[in-house]
Deep mutational scan, measured.
Amino acid sequence: DETGKFLVLALYDYQEKSPREVTAKKGDILTLLNSTNKDWWKVEVNGRQGFVPAAYVKFL
């Protein structure tokens, strides 16, 4: 159920650099879980949760 969740689009490829991050490919649609940090947003992609740089994604 996606009610109340926001989707964001990956603008660039991002390769995770730590276990707390997730890899995303340009064009991926990610479920935004938390955007309270202006630099790192928590997302879910391909069943995995983790952080990506906020500058790499935008709201749909």
Rank of each mutant, 00 (worst) to 15 (best):
G47R: 01
K42L: 15
K26F: 06
F51T: 02
V45E: 00
V45W: 05
L32E: 00
K17M: 11
N34Y: 07
L60E: 04
D1Y: 14
E16F: 05
F59K: 10
Q49R: 10
G50C: 07
T3F: 13
N46M: 08
N34C: 13
Q15R: 08
W40P: 00
V43A: 00
P53N: 04
L9F: 09
V52I: 15
A10N: 02
L33F: 02
I29N: 01
Y14A: 02
A54N: 02
L7V: 08
A10G: 02
K58H: 09
K5Q: 11
G27W: 05
K38A: 11
V52N: 02
D28K: 03
R20E: 12
V8N: 01
F6Y: 12
V22R: 02
P53M: 09
Y56F: 13
K42N: 04
N34D: 15
P19S: 12
A54M: 05
V52K: 01
G50A: 03
N34W: 08
K5F: 14
V45F: 11
Q15G: 07
T3C: 15
L9K: 07
E44S: 08
V8I: 08
Q49C: 11
L11S: 02
L11N: 02
N46E: 07
V22H: 03
L7M: 10
A24R: 03
T36E: 13
P53R: 05
Y56M: 15
D13R: 02
V43S: 00
N34A: 08
S35D: 11
A55S: 14
E21D: 05
G50F: 08
K26W: 07
K26T: 07
F51V: 04
T3N: 13
K5H: 13
K25Y: 09
V45H: 09
K38F: 06
E21N: 04
G47A: 03
L30I: 08
S35V: 09
L30F: 06
E21P: 04
S18F: 06
Y56I: 15
F6E: 08
T36M: 10
K25G: 04
E44R: 04
Q49M: 08
E21M: 06
P53C: 14
K26A: 13
G47E: 03
L60P: 03
N46Q: 08
V22C: 08
E44G: 03
F6K: 12
